[in-house]
């Protein structure tokens, strides 16, 4: 399934990860001036980010980030707190728009469409790039209404039965159906933390997005709930492109195929997860994963 071809084609020159040499990397480094080590590009990207800078008022939070997010894979973003990984994630579905002082420059494309284009509408963008947040944030509504919220506002269901189907399939895919099917009309806030987070994932799935962004989805959860979510992420990978920010290196190692290491707003290194954790190429990455800071 991985070899599915992107019909729209890829803008950036694809760079075979295997073929990447030190020189090539140096080239990409100079080409974009970003200083990133590793394989920025992938063959079949869902999203491409070029020269992304983010400012909060006067303060710059993200410096010149270039990164591709491959189709149907999980990319994790790691780094010490305050390194800008969450900020960068929130650029991918323009959640930063809700912050007045936040300004984004550069180019982020999704399937060839520049998402920061003036004419682009954030409503369909966010429908196709879903998001799951750090703290589970179910609406103070029933479980059913939580899931049905997205389909309802977007007008996705033809009738009540169709909506029921969407809710059931989303909950099933989020692995929550069996646990909640008998209490759909109870408030979503009454579930346990782990269940709430899976509810939020189901809520995101209900509008059938292509990309799901996860901002430290397990940081508020206990280890057992975390394990469940990780399992779920692994299953979802089949059908969705997932970008996950995490502060846990183990989690990144467990769930992701690619890993990006951020440091002080800069993307330091990106590459295959195995390679990053076993053989980091940049000194900062190495220091971080060996626990020298972070």
């Amino acid at each position: 399934m991985e070899e599915l071809v992107n019909e729209s084609g890829v803008v950036a020159k694809p760079l075979n990860p295997e073929a990447a040499t030190e020189v090539d990397m140096q080239a990409s480094y100079e080409q974009h001036g970003s200083g990133t080590v590793g394989e920025i590009y992938v063959n079949d990207p869902r999203m491409t980010c070029r020269n992304v800078n983010v400012y909060y008022g006067e303060k710059q939070a993200i410096f010149d980030v270039n990164l591709d997010i491959g189709k149907n894979q999980v990319i994790s973003m790691i780094g010490p707190s305050g390194c800008g990984k969450s900020t960068f994630l929130r650029c991918l579905n323009r959640m930063n728009d809700t912050i007045d002082v936040c300004r984004v420059t550069g180019q982020i494309k999704m399937d060839d469409q520049d998402i920061y284009d003036d004419g682009l509408d954030v409503v369909p963008l966010r429908a196709s790039v879903g998001m799951v947040f750090q703290k589970p944030n179910p609406f103070p509504k029933s479980i059913y209404d939580n899931i049905a919220y997205g389909p309802r506002i977007h007008g996705l269901s033809d009738n009540a039965r169709h909506l029921d189907e969407i809710v059931e399939s989303s909950l099933t895919r989020a692995g929550l159906w069996e646990e909640v099917k008998d209490r759909m009309d109870q408030p979503g806030t009454g579930l346990s933390g782990g269940q709430q987070q899976r509810l939020c994932i189901a809520r995101a799935i209900a509008v059938s997005p292509e990309v799901i962004l996860m901002d430290e989805p397990c940081s508020a959860l206990d280890p057992i709930a975390t394990a469940k979510i990780e399992e779920l992420i692994d299953e979802l990978r089949e059908n969705y492109t997932i970008a996950i920010v995490t502060h846990s290196m183990q989690q990144a190692a467990r769930v992701s195929q690619r890993t990006a290491y951020f440091h002080l707003g800069k993307l330091i290194e990106v590459g295959e997860t195995d390679q990053i954790f076993t053989n980091p190429r940049h000194k900062l990455t190495e220091d971080y994963i060996t626990g020298r800071f972070g």
Partner: peptide, 18 residues
Amino acid sequence: VPQAMRDGSYGLGATRSE
């Protein structure tokens, strides 16, 4: 009302009024 509620809704593509 916590910002997380708004984020949750905007993240799904809801408009402000929704």
